[in-house]
């Protein structure tokens, strides 16, 4: 009962304090809002970059051409092998007749050229999509081991360059977002600390009238959480509405169908959730640490 009473009174005091120290509260909220907006933009960008690179990576496939002499049994043998290989996401068999049909549909010139030839010069093929593109080369060499394979093509050289570029981009975005989280925590934490430092008399008086350490700390902790949450409201609104507007404006993709944006829902709601949790946690830790300093008398 006493604990519940203390909880309620601390919550009430913290709300009162936010209102009565309006200028300091506004400063802390503004600082939280600005830093969280920057963080939200960085998170949205980095997630979209990751989405684009993984979409592009999905386009990287291994096209395996089977020799003219390759038998049905050998093709079945290859399919069984592909089923066993851990890095294979899926594969698609395409016979030389299917290829011919596809090429004929693609262009009239090719169509007449193919009609001119007596035999179909094309080869049966299997297009393999891998799980991890970093092992594209290893997987293709594994497939190449069969003697009935004519050639294996995965864009050697260019594919590796693309993969390493994607890798670097991904790491850079993770570092940027990580650094921004640290900077945000530092800025919000310190602003809330400043609001509490200016009220050290209040803490002193609370202790003098016989308040327990937890009774002194609780209202400040709640205040930190409240300031953090209020500070995250504007960034949440900005990121939700802003992202939906941008998504609608570009119709979901930039330049080409390959560079697509992440669908706003539920992605942007997760971002909003992260912002409010970050605001509250940083506010809580900042205020709790600031008060602790004055309890060591």
């Amino acid at each position: 009962m006493k604990a519940l009473r203390m909880f309620n009174r601390s919550l009430r005091d913290s709300i009162k304090s936010v209102v009565r120290n309006l200028s300091l509260s506004t400063a802390a909220i503004t600082c939280s809002s600005i830093t969280l907006i920057i963080l939200a933009v960085a998170m949205i960008l980095s997630y979209n970059v990751k989405n684009i690179t993984s979409n592009l990576e999905k386009e990287l496939t291994i096209v395996t051409y089977i020799k003219e002499s390759g038998t049905e049994e050998q093709i079945t043998q290859l399919k069984e092998k592909l089923n066993e290989m851990p890095n294979i996401e899926k594969y698609e068999y395409k016979s030389k007749e299917e290829w011919k049909l596809e090429i004929k549909n693609f262009s009239d010139t090719y169509s007449s050229a193919l009609d001119y030839l007596e035999n179909n010069p094309l080869l049966n093929s299997i297009t393999v999509t891998v799980k991890d593109v970093k092992d594209l080369k290893i997987t293709s060499e594994e497939i190449k081991k069969f003697d009935f394979i004519e050639s294996v093509d995965y864009g050697e050289g260019m594919a590796e360059k693309l993969i390493s570029a994607f890798d670097i981009i991904e790491k850079i975005t993770i570092v940027i977002v990580g650094a921004l989280v640290v900077v945000t925590a530092f800025l919000i934490g310190n602003t809330i600390k400043l609001t509490i430092f200016s009220r050290k008399n209040e803490i002193e008086i609370m202790r003098l009238v016989g308040a327990t350490n937890i009774r002194v700390r609780l209202p400040f902790i709640f205040e930190g959480i409240i300031l953090g949450i209020i500070g995250s409201i504007i960034p949440m609104i900005v990121s939700i509405y802003g992202y939906v507007m941008i998504y609608d404006h570009f119709h979901g993709y930039i330049f080409s169908q390959i560079i697509t944006l992440v669908k706003p829902f539920n992605f942007i709601l997760y971002i909003a959730g992260i912002l409010v949790v970050l605001g509250a946690v940083i506010g809580m830790i900042g205020s709790s640490r600031a008060v602790r300093k004055y309890l060591k008398i």
């Binding site: 120290n21 008399n201 002193e204 003098l208 327990t212 350490n213 060591k296």
Partner: peptide, 24 residues
């Protein structure tokens, strides 16, 4: 101990020259 100071303070009242009232 620091964490038990409140037990003493609850037994007494303190009046200061500078009042030490909470301004808000």
């Amino acid at each position: 101990r620091n964490s038990k100071v409140y037990k003493l303070r609850r037994k007494l009242g303190i009046v200061f020259q500078d009042f030490k009232l909470l301004p808000k």
